Deep mutational scan, measured.
Amino acid sequence: RLRTTILPEQLEILYRWYMQDSNPTRKMLDCISEEVGLKKRVVQVWFQNTRARERK
């Protein structure tokens, strides 16, 4: 499996959503993934990793 590259524009959108809610619902993940143009699972893992980084 290839690692997904997240573009700066996509990152900006993801962080904007993250500021609103760091733990989005499944429905929100659907909306975010549509807006960003990434698979739902990629967005979900990005949120998990970002929460983990914040805890450090």
Rank of each mutant, 00 (worst) to 15 (best):
2 L>P: 09
47 F>C: 02
41 R>N: 13
35 E>W: 04
6 I>M: 09
23 N>C: 05
50 T>C: 08
8 P>G: 08
26 R>H: 12
8 P>Y: 04
29 L>Y: 07
7 L>S: 15
34 E>C: 03
48 Q>L: 07
41 R>I: 08
6 I>W: 02
22 S>M: 08
2 L>E: 14
37 G>W: 06
24 P>E: 04
23 N>W: 10
20 Q>N: 08
2 L>T: 13
48 Q>M: 06
18 Y>M: 05
7 L>H: 12
49 N>Y: 04
19 M>H: 14
40 K>L: 06
36 V>A: 12
15 Y>H: 10
24 P>K: 02
37 G>E: 06
9 E>G: 10
12 E>L: 04
48 Q>A: 12
32 I>K: 01
50 T>Q: 15
15 Y>M: 15
51 R>F: 00
50 T>I: 03
1 R>I: 12
21 D>L: 06
16 R>L: 07
9 E>S: 08
30 D>T: 11
31 C>V: 15
14 L>Q: 05
18 Y>W: 04
21 D>K: 09
21 D>Q: 00
22 S>Q: 10
43 V>G: 04
4 T>F: 04
9 E>D: 08
25 T>E: 10
53 R>I: 06
21 D>F: 01
15 Y>C: 13
22 S>F: 02
1 R>A: 08
27 K>Y: 08
25 T>K: 10
7 L>K: 11
39 K>E: 13
18 Y>F: 08
28 M>S: 12
42 V>E: 15
49 N>Q: 11
37 G>R: 03
46 W>A: 05
48 Q>T: 07
6 I>V: 09
34 E>Q: 13
30 D>M: 08
7 L>G: 14
8 P>Q: 08
46 W>T: 02
21 D>G: 02
40 K>W: 08
53 R>C: 14
48 Q>H: 11
39 K>Q: 15
15 Y>Q: 15
44 Q>W: 11
48 Q>P: 01
26 R>A: 15
51 R>S: 05
15 Y>P: 04
2 L>S: 14
40 K>T: 12
48 Q>W: 04
42 V>T: 12
30 D>W: 07
56 K>L: 11
40 K>A: 11
11 L>I: 09
40 K>H: 13
29 L>C: 05
21 D>P: 01
41 R>L: 08
25 T>C: 06
26 R>W: 12
35 E>H: 00
14 L>P: 09
55 R>M: 15
37 G>Y: 00
46 W>G: 02
39 K>F: 01
47 F>A: 00
53 R>N: 14
1 R>H: 11
27 K>M: 06
32 I>R: 01
22 S>L: 04
7 L>Y: 06
41 R>D: 14
11 L>Y: 09
11 L>E: 12
14 L>W: 00
6 I>F: 09
19 M>K: 13
14 L>S: 00
53 R>M: 12
40 K>P: 14
22 S>E: 13
36 V>T: 12
9 E>Q: 09
13 I>T: 12
25 T>W: 00
22 S>R: 12
22 S>A: 13
34 E>F: 01
34 E>I: 01
16 R>T: 08
40 K>G: 07
23 N>R: 12
23 N>E: 13
55 R>D: 12
19 M>W: 11
39 K>P: 15
40 K>Q: 12
44 Q>R: 11
32 I>E: 01
30 D>I: 12
56 K>W: 04
51 R>M: 04
16 R>E: 08
10 Q>C: 05
28 M>E: 12
35 E>D: 09
11 L>P: 01
45 V>Y: 09
50 T>D: 04
42 V>N: 06
25 T>N: 15
38 L>C: 06
43 V>W: 03
12 E>A: 07
7 L>V: 07
54 E>L: 05
17 W>Y: 15
6 I>K: 04
34 E>D: 09
15 Y>L: 13
11 L>H: 14
17 W>S: 08
43 V>H: 00
45 V>Q: 12
14 L>G: 00
31 C>Y: 10
43 V>T: 05
44 Q>I: 09
46 W>L: 01
42 V>M: 07
16 R>H: 08
7 L>I: 10
19 M>Y: 14
37 G>A: 02
10 Q>A: 01
46 W>E: 03
28 M>N: 10
33 S>H: 08
35 E>M: 03
41 R>V: 10
27 K>P: 11
32 I>N: 02
28 M>R: 10
22 S>P: 15
22 S>Y: 05
53 R>A: 11
52 A>K: 12
24 P>H: 05
55 R>E: 10
36 V>N: 02
47 F>R: 02
54 E>F: 05
38 L>D: 05
